[in-house]
Computed example of a mutant assay.
Amino acid sequence: MAATTDTSLLSAEMKEEEEELYEQLLLQAAKEMQGTSVPPAQESKQIRPQPGFCVKAKTRSSEKIFINICKSDKIPPPPDLSEEDLVILLESEDPSGYRIPMSLGEPHAEVDNSGNGCTAYDIVINPTFYNKIHSNKLFMEFFMTIGFEGLENKYNLEMSREWRMLKNRKFLGSVVEQNIRTKSKPVIQELKSSTTPTESSAKPLVSEVESSCVEPDYTIVAEPADQHQHPSFLVAEISLPKVDSARSLLLDLGEDRIVLWARPDLYHLDIYIPYNVIPEESGSQFNTNTGVLTVTMPVQPA
């Protein structure tokens, strides 16, 4: 496996020749947080989800609500997980490390079969993951728990965990388009040293691979490096020894995901990160001497 992530993800060990660059990136991100630079415009796009199935549930105050579980290929799938791995995850002390990308639509007023008014919510997930929960009871229960928590947090609800899937009903009401936020694309600054690189700085961090479009080696560290303290920044270092210029890099950064393409078909990286970050205030720099792309990401407050 190409990834070599620090076991605690909170290690602050840096090579001496990279410490200065690391400090510069932290200062740059701090300045952006203070408003000294203009963040890139937030991009969004509309999706029209496909109906899947409808769930009847209740709030703690016995108010009847309906949840439309929909699907769209514009929503990324979560990392693949077997049923055995899910059992281990659920038995662990912190199952929150597994994230399910989903879009939670605004509540809309509808009428149920009895002619009574009710409220419906739409949850959109990736079609592949939709098929998985539809065919596996354990994954279905896990997803519904996460979905309920998402609605509660977003709309300040208190929901009962009892629910029932409606037969022969894919959707309550009319399908409404949703606006989803796309990942911002930070501008990659290119660093070139005016001095002759030393032997250690010029040496690639990974050996070249003959095959095209491979996953590069990367590390993720956090600052401060304290396992018991919520970090202020995450720093990802991605080794790209075949890349000569930042112009060939395309970086998409989401709240919990990094996607990188190095053209033409050199590298592709698509990973989830351990904390939610602030894409609009993140910065990235590519060092042409070391072939390392460094992405500095302020972490959302706990």
Results as ranks from 00 to 15, higher is better:
28 Q>L: 13
29 A>C: 06
31 K>N: 09
36 T>M: 13
38 V>Y: 07
39 P>Y: 01
43 E>A: 06
45 K>D: 00
50 Q>V: 12
53 F>P: 05
55 V>W: 04
58 K>C: 00
59 T>G: 10
61 S>M: 07
63 E>Y: 04
63 E>K: 12
64 K>Q: 00
65 I>K: 03
67 I>E: 06
71 K>S: 15
72 S>L: 06
73 D>M: 02
75 I>L: 09
78 P>N: 14
78 P>T: 03
79 P>C: 07
80 D>N: 06
81 L>I: 14
84 E>N: 08
84 E>P: 03
84 E>Y: 13
84 E>C: 11
85 D>W: 03
86 L>S: 08
87 V>L: 12
89 L>W: 11
89 L>A: 06
89 L>C: 03
91 E>P: 00
92 S>F: 14
93 E>K: 15
93 E>A: 15
109 A>N: 14
110 E>A: 10
115 G>L: 12
116 N>M: 00
116 N>I: 06
121 Y>Q: 07
126 N>K: 03
128 T>A: 13
131 N>D: 14
133 I>R: 01
134 H>Q: 14
138 L>Y: 10
139 F>M: 09
140 M>R: 15
141 E>F: 14
141 E>S: 10
144 M>P: 11
144 M>D: 07
149 E>A: 15
150 G>C: 03
154 K>I: 05
157 L>Q: 02
158 E>M: 08
158 E>G: 07
160 S>R: 01
167 K>A: 12
167 K>D: 15
169 R>I: 11
